[in-house]
């Protein structure tokens, strides 16, 4: 019996250690089809920087802003022509740009639904279509520049030759996001990863915004006057180390938070009765609010615990008034 048990454990371990998804070698045909249907290359100075995908039939293309820098990024069409486009809007939170250009017969792409752990996705590059896999649930992301919270999706691709910020499609050809960042690892960890679980080619761990945020951006870009409204209160916060809550470290002047009376040093305990366990929880709650919502925020300052009423604004613009009602 013990021998059977050990052998079962051995076989189970071997099965788990085996790469999950056998990767079919991509073909140039796949890349061509994907390029023809979904994407157009964005060029700068004659070099391909990334790809744009068509989100409306009137010629609105979605692309990472890093690839669409400048007032007139160049779109490489299927027949080799290069067309100047115009940047209609930027969303600095998700770093996506809306550019206007010829449709070139491309398929208008829709946004993907929820992504499951282990789901197969495809990334389009200039040379190939790369098969990858969704890993885990949403990751807590934060933009180093704006400090804004961004729910991210993590992907793993068994190919380290990925180049550029590529659109990621699910198996139905719907847009999951753009690979805009990749995990920085040193050579030793790369070797460990290669020899560990992910095959001889190694992996690339890349991130895109999650489909929920993507839908928010695309729906904003599809409006007549393209605009993306991310909820904001105009404050910075971090984990409160002495207990639960989020410690406010900075309040922007004339922001909704400032107008509500929120100050640096306050500890946010709950919002509309829902406890704020930590800084991540507050960021998540805020991100899921809608612009214009009015919330009751319970805060503590020294020995005082009181509630302030705060109207959620958009993109740090001081467009909300707030009232503070102190309840000692």
């Amino acid at each position: 019996m013990w021998f059977l048990a050990v052998n079962s454990a051995f076989l189970t371990t071997v099965a788990l250690a085996t790469p999950v998804t056998p990767v079919a070698p991509p073909t140039s045909t796949q890349a061509n089809v994907a390029y023809a249907q979904f994407a157009r290359a964005v060029e700068q100075s004659g070099r391909t920087r990334g790809f744009a995908v068509l989100i409306t039939s009137d010629g609105r293309w979605l692309a990472p802003d890093i690839d669409a820098e400048g007032p007139a990024p160049v779109l490489l069409l299927r027949d080799g022509r290069r067309m100047s486009t115009r940047v209609l809007a930027n969303d600095e939170i998700t770093r996506l740009a809306l550019i206007f250009g010829p449709t070139d017969g491309a398929t208008v792409i829709s946004e993907a639904g929820t992504l499951r752990d282990g789901q197969t996705v495809w990334a389009i590059s200039a040379q190939d279509v790369h098969r990858g896999m969704v890993v885990g649930e949403d990751k807590v992301g934060i933009d180093e520049d704006t400090r804004r919270y961004l729910p991210l999706r993590e992907y793993r691709f068994e190919n380290l030759s990925l180049v550029g910020s590529m659109p990621v499609l699910d198996q139905e050809g719907r847009l999951c996001g753009f690979l805009s960042a990749s995990l920085a690892i040193d050579s030793s960890s790369a070797n460990m990863v290669r020899s560990g679980q992910f095959g001889p080619g190694g992996i690339a761990v890349s991130y895109s915004i999650n489909p929920t945020v993507l839908r928010r951006v695309v729906s904003g870009f599809r409006m007549a006057e393209p605009r993306v409204n991310h909820p904001t209160i105009g404050a910075f916060w971090r984990n409160y180390p002495a207990g639960e809550g989020a410690l406010v470290t900075q309040v922007l002047p004339e922001s909704p938070a400032a107008q509500a009376g929120l100050q640096a040093g306050f500890v946010i305990l709950s919002i509309d009765g829902e406890p704020v366990d930590n800084a991540v929880k507050l960021a998540t709650m805020l991100f899921n609010m809608s612009v214009g919502d009015t919330v009751n925020m319970t805060v503590r300052d020294l020995d005082r615990t009181f509630t302030i009423q705060l109207k959620v604004g958009a993109n740090a613009k001081p467009e909300a008034s707030a009232q503070a009602s102190e309840t000692r």
């Binding site: 920087r49 690839d67 910020s165 690979l179 960042a181 990749s182 995990l183 920085a184 890349s206």
Partner: peptide, 12 residues
Amino acid sequence: ERSGPVTGQNAA
């Protein structure tokens, strides 16, 4: 905003 291990992508 730094360059990541994948060319053309930011570092995470």
